[in-house]
């Protein structure tokens, strides 16, 4: 049986600072220079003010589960041994949404509103991927 690994995203020029941040343990999103709106993934312009100027800024990495699904179909061989697995939408404290995986929670135990925080999974020397885990109650 050939071994398949999950697809590793290419470090494109517009996403370089995101991956630089992730490698250093920081979750980065784009911030519009025109109006300050945060966005992810990278985009050419701000949907609020249409400014094309932006910079990458670190965010807290804290948020809550906004929604999720549980995937049962295998679309890529690397996921054949993973199904069923969950994909989550995290609403970050700063307001923007981030699609990711939630570690340490069985798919059927995931609930909207769970408090989560970012953690990083190292895939290679260049690429670390933001994932999320439950955050202890304050």
């Amino acid at each position: 049986m050939p071994e398949f690994s999950k697809p590793i995203p290419a470090i494109t020029p517009e996403m370089r600072e995101f991956f630089d941040g992730a490698r250093a343990g920081r979750l980065m999103v784009q911030k519009c220079d025109g109006c300050g709106k945060l966005r992810f993934p990278a985009d050419d312009l701000c949907s609020k003010c249409n400014s094309t100027a932006s910079r990458w800024v670190p965010v807290s990495g804290r948020g809550e589960i906004f929604s999720f699904n549980i995937m049962h179909q295998v679309y890529h061989p690397a996921f054949a041994g993973q199904v069923p697995y969950a994909v989550v939408v995290v609403e970050l404290e700063e307001g923007c949404k981030f699609v990711s995986n939630l570690l340490g929670v069985k798919p059927h135990d995931i609930k909207c509103g769970m408090q989560v925080e970012v953690t990083f999974e190292k895939l290679s020397d260049e690429v670390s991927m933001p994932k999320f885990r439950l955050r202890a109650a304050k």
Partner: peptide, 19 residues
């Protein structure tokens, strides 16, 4: 799917509507 979505396992229209 491509990029980050493919790594997280987010494939297809079904998965987005499921959210």
């Amino acid at each position: 799917a491509q990029g980050l979505d493919a790594h997280y396992g987010l494939f297809g229209v079904n998965a987005h509507y499921a959210f």
